[in-house]
Amino acid sequence: MNRYIKTAIYYAILGLATGVFYREFTKFNGVDGETSLAFIHVHTLILGMIFFLILSLFEDKFHISTFKSFKVFNIFYNVGLMTTIGIFLVRGITEVLESNISRGLDKALSGIAGLGHISLSIGLITMLLILNKASKKLNNQTQKI
């Protein structure tokens, strides 16, 4: 359970830092409109901090970290989330600075963002399968009593 809370703290710090970066970077560059930077703060806090705080509750009840596929979840989810956050950061900075990026670079960023979302999806699906197995296991144990 402690590992989830530590991970939640990490994502909370990252989420708050990116929120400050968004506000200050856009203000410094005189940008009033919304950019991709605006999404980093919310994504990091919800998909990072809130998600792992909820997982700490599931760990207490279901011991989800004991499942073999938990390592798959942990790797895919965190890599996917960090990739997504990274691409939001790159896209947002280029928007604020009004950089003219090539069509190829634009497509490459979109492709990497897609891979990040796929990785995040694999992690989420894996966690849902773990929770399904854990609840069935708990139901079987309570029925035997």
Rank of each mutant, 00 (worst) to 15 (best):
T44I: 00
I122Y: 06
L14C: 09
I50K: 07
A38I: 10
S69E: 14
T7G: 07
F76P: 04
H117G: 14
Y11H: 08
N29R: 11
K68G: 08
F21I: 00
G86R: 09
L16V: 13
F52H: 07
F39V: 11
L124H: 06
D32K: 12
G114D: 09
I5C: 08
A12C: 12
A8Q: 01
G104Y: 10
K6W: 15
K107G: 13
F25G: 02
I145D: 13
I125H: 05
K6N: 15
I145G: 15
K107T: 13
E34K: 15
L105Y: 11
H63I: 01
K61N: 08
V72E: 12
V42D: 06
D106N: 15
G19E: 04
N132R: 12
S102K: 02
L129V: 14
K144C: 01
T7L: 10
K137P: 04
D60G: 14
L89Y: 10
E59T: 04
E34M: 14
F52T: 04
L138F: 09
G92L: 01
T26M: 06
S135Y: 01
A8N: 00
V31L: 06
V42E: 07
T18R: 09
I101K: 00
N78K: 07
K27A: 14
F58R: 02
T44E: 00
T35P: 08
L120E: 06
T44K: 00
Q141M: 10
N29S: 11
E24S: 10
R3M: 14
S102I: 03
I130H: 04
L47W: 00
I118G: 11
D60A: 12
G114Y: 07
G111L: 02
D60P: 08
Y4V: 06
Y4K: 10
M127D: 03
M82Q: 14
H43R: 02
F88K: 05
F73V: 03
K136T: 00
A108G: 12
N140T: 08
L120A: 05
T83V: 15
G114R: 03
K144P: 07
G80M: 05
I50G: 07
M127E: 04
K144T: 04
L97E: 10
H43D: 04
F67C: 02
G33S: 15
H117A: 15
L131C: 06
I93D: 05
S69M: 11
F67H: 05
K144N: 09
N140R: 09
K133N: 11
S135V: 02
F70T: 01
Q143Y: 14
D106T: 11
I112S: 02
G86C: 09
F67I: 00
S110I: 11
N2C: 11
I40H: 08
F58Q: 04
V96I: 03
G114C: 06
M127W: 07
F51S: 10
G19S: 05
N74S: 13
E95Q: 08
I112R: 04
K27I: 06
N74I: 09
V31N: 04
L45G: 00
A113P: 10
L57I: 13
L124N: 06
N132K: 15
G48C: 03
A134D: 00
K136P: 00
G30D: 04
L124D: 03
F88N: 05
T83I: 14
K71L: 12
A108Q: 12
V42Q: 10
G104A: 14
A12W: 08
N132H: 14
N2A: 13
T94C: 07
V31P: 06
G104K: 13
